[in-house]
Design a binder for these strands. Structure first.
Lengths: 230, 230
DNA sequence: AAGATAACATTGAAAATTTAATGTTTTTTA
DNA sequence: TAAAAAACATTAAATTTTCAATGTTATCTT
């Protein structure tokens, strides 16, 4: 994606909304909303919390993190970059948040009261359909990750994570990874050792190059091949 | 159509729709829709197919089946019983179907043209919100299954499958299971051997009782305990 | 009703994955 | 900036899970 396109793509919630609702209607949202910054590691919407708010991610990257009380383990369902509407299952659903949404890079967020937004959605079908389609992309990426985890062994899964990161999060073959090895493991559903060993191996084989947080996919075809054979 | 069937038909999608749209608007849907029966094993919406249709499941049980070309393996993302609106990621999304929806029991289905339905949703926000909320339940159950698979070992996962079957599919502690052991394995993401051994073990321990297809959960607390410890 | 096919069941060996132990490097913080 | 904490890295042992082989039972088909 070119810089120009990227810039268009990164338009805020207001711009998107005003394609569907009036300035006056948007004011109704604005009145009960806040514009917040979250630092890396901070929780934007918390697992188990009532779905009182929907968040529009204006900039930054967010992980969908499920934390298991019983085992103490985390699972990253998916990772998304701005602009996105964040609401968990709860953009649609009325139960308490299934998982947390946590900033993995500094984020700018427009925090909206759910009931105010929902009233507007009910009165404006085009707006509702547009927002739901935006939101459904995140479901899709979670489901794709599920399919990867269910069908493939660690190398295929880690390959899928890297392909997803380059194609859908950083939009480039090289990127400064904002996840730790532990988080990569939580994303690919394997142990940290699996991540470290696989990355070392791939670096030796010239598939990727790593220096600190900077990662580059050198042989994209080989990575796709690994993803394919699982 | 017999009187009985006619009644099912009216208690299904039409009844729900008429809470939100006019009889005239529903006629627009009806004109381009068909009422179909699917036998056990038949595909209602096929993986990879363009999302030309949305299906309303009037009666029966459906599995969401992802089939991997590379490995030839199947994964059951979730299982749902009527009444439900079926559209995969595609009720929201415009890509080709991510997975198939397959009848695991005889089903009655109202097959609707997507573009006709979507036009109505755009013109009626209350209808849109209601349908999306209905549809999101299936996403939720897929995500819950993902979390189970990602966090737990086989016994915890199989326990989760049984809890889900009794609570959300058959609505009873005893049920005639319409899945084979192979399908149970595809649902809990483990091998058939794991299913067979675990079920035998649980039967010996008095947690469940099995005779043919008839299953009964005897010690629900123990099953929940197994689910919890993973 | 007989034969064929699919489903169910059991077992030991093989493979994949995690755990544990240990050390190095990088980052955070007092 | 020095100490502490976290992240990164490697290896062997233990565990979990799948694969392969085999037989029985149930279901479908002609």
């Amino acid at each position: 994606m070119s810089n120009q396109k990227l810039e268009n793509y990164y338009s805020g919630f207001k711009k998107i909304s005003l394609q569907f609702i009036t300035a006056e209607e948007f004011k109704r949202i604005e009145k009960t909303s806040v514009y917040l910054k979250f630092k890396k590691g901070e929780i934007i919407l918390k697992q188990g919390h009532p779905p009182t708010h929907v968040a529009f991610l204006q900039s930054g990257i967010v992980k969908f993190n499920f934390s298991s009380e019983a085992t103490g383990k985390n699972t990253i369902l998916t990772l998304v970059s701005a602009p996105k509407i964040l609401g968990g299952a709860n953009l649609f659903y009325k139960d308490n948040n299934l998982f947390s949404m946590v900033a993995v890079e500094d984020c700018e967020v427009f925090l909206i009261e759910s009931n105010v937004l929902f009233e507007l959605l009910k009165s404006n079908g085009r707006f509702a359909v547009a927002l739901f389609q935006l939101a459904s992309e995140m479901f899709k990426s979670s489901i794709l990750n599920f399919i990867s985890v269910a069908n493939k062994q660690k190398e295929g899964r880690i390959a899928d994570v890297f392909l997803y990161l380059s194609q859908d999060v950083y939009f480039h073959n090289s990127f400064n990874l904002s996840l730790t090895r532990k988080e990569l493991a939580e994303f690919a559903c394997c142990s940290v050792e699996n991540i470290i060993m696989t990355l070392s191996k791939w670096q030796q084989e010239g598939i990727i190059s790593i220096s600190g947080k900077k990662m580059e996919i050198i042989d994209m075809n080989k990575l796709k091949q690994i993803s394919k054979i699982g």
